[in-house]
């Protein structure tokens, strides 16, 4: 049988989440003796990306081409994926738990009448059956779930799997895209965005988050300098208090009603460590807290803490990191 991986791209370039999803599918397939089918739906010119999916473990890449797929096309993607899952002996289908995957996976599940485990952090194979582990209640508990319906549908949390090369020469197969214009109930356009060099908090290697301790939005300059010193792939995050105050956009909010993140390194600067904030970042591999209050709850969760005035500590930290990076 096969494990299907949905390979999300944006503007014709695979997203990191696609490589993570294929990596997860490869691991599951190896445990079961299955092969991996990656599905790439987009406009012309994706052959190169198809090869790349092979490098990360896809045995076969199914390419569905249409000019209508420059942007996300929810209804058409749903029909194509559901059909492929039915026709190709798919035991499990994995999608990234990205904005697109979170929109698409439930539609596919409803069309197939199959159970979906969302935002999964670990997939196990026990006696030939799949089990999915996922956080619930904002990470306050973890659920181990079994599947009572087939196929198993899973959306995989960003960064839960690290993309890993496992090269093979994938078979490329073009699949017919015969969906009539009538299936398109919605029209999706990518909105023009201000140019943005920093990654989203959900995808970053390192997050530098600030809270009310920064006292004003202008002081984010300090955190930006620290982020720049740490290098590319560093995102800025925020507590809800500062998002509510309008100092930072909601897209940066980490926590129960913001984003749940699990980067290798998380800096909490001037953040007290309320339970709703912790819910969003407690699974980070390493947490560093800077706070002037030695009793701030954040120190109970942080791996390393410095008690002190952030206006003194952060510039020094930036300076030391710059030195370190210069010596690398």
């Amino acid at each position: 049988m096969s494990i299907l991986a949905f390979a999300e791209h944006r503007g014709g370039t695979l997203r990191q989440a696609a490589l993570e999803t294929v990596t997860a599918a490869r691991r599951v397939a190896d445990a079961l003796g299955d092969d991996v089918i990656a599905v790439l739906l987009g406009p012309d010119g994706l052959a190169k990306e198809a090869e790349r999916l092979g490098r990360f473990g896809a045995d076969r890449v199914l390419l569905g081409k249409s000019d209508a797929f420059v942007e996300y096309a929810p209804e058409a993607f749903t029909i194509l994926l559901a059909d492929l899952i039915r026709e190709r002996g798919v035991r499990a289908a994995l999608l990234p738990a990205s904005a697109q995957g979170k929109d698409l996976a439930p539609r596919v599940a409803a069309r197939l009448g199959a159970g979906l485990a969302s935002d999964v952090t670990q997939i196990d194979v026990k006696e030939g059956r799949l089990q999915a582990i996922r956080p619930a209640y904002a990470g306050k508990v973890f659920l181990r779930l079994g599947f009572k319906s087939e196929p198993a549908l899973i959306s995989v949390r960003s960064r839960a799997y690290t993309a890993e090369e496992n090269p093979r020469e994938p078979e490329l197969e073009e699949i017919p895209v015969n969906v009539g214009a009538d299936v398109f109930r919605t029209k999706v356009r990518g909105a023009a965005e201000a140019k943005k060099e920093r990654p989203d908090v959900a995808e970053a290697e390192i997050i530098v988050s600030g809270g009310r301790g920064l006292q004003s939005p202008e002081n984010w300059k300090l955190l930006e300098e620290l982020a720049d010193a740490l290098g590319p792939g560093v995102a800025l995050g925020a507590s809800r208090a500062v998002v509510d105050a309008g100092w930072r956009p909601h897209s940066e909010q980490v926590g129960q009603t913001g984003k749940v993140v699990a980067p290798p390194l998380y800096f909490a600067v001037g953040i007290s460590g309320a339970i709703q904030h912790l819910a969003g970042m407690r699974t980070a591999k390493c947490i560093v807290a800077v706070n002037k209050d030695p009793d701030a709850p954040i120190f109970k969760t942080a791996d390393y803490g410095i008690v002190g005035d952030l206006f003194e500590v952060v510039p020094r930290l930036t300076e030391e990191i710059r030195k370190l990076r210069a010596g690398d």
Partner: peptide
């Protein structure tokens, strides 16, 4: 329950 994060270490005070 998620693995308890052992309370970390206060590395020190100030810059």
């Amino acid at each position: 329950n998620p693995p308890e994060r052992s309370a970390g270490e206060i590395v020190g005070e100030g810059p």
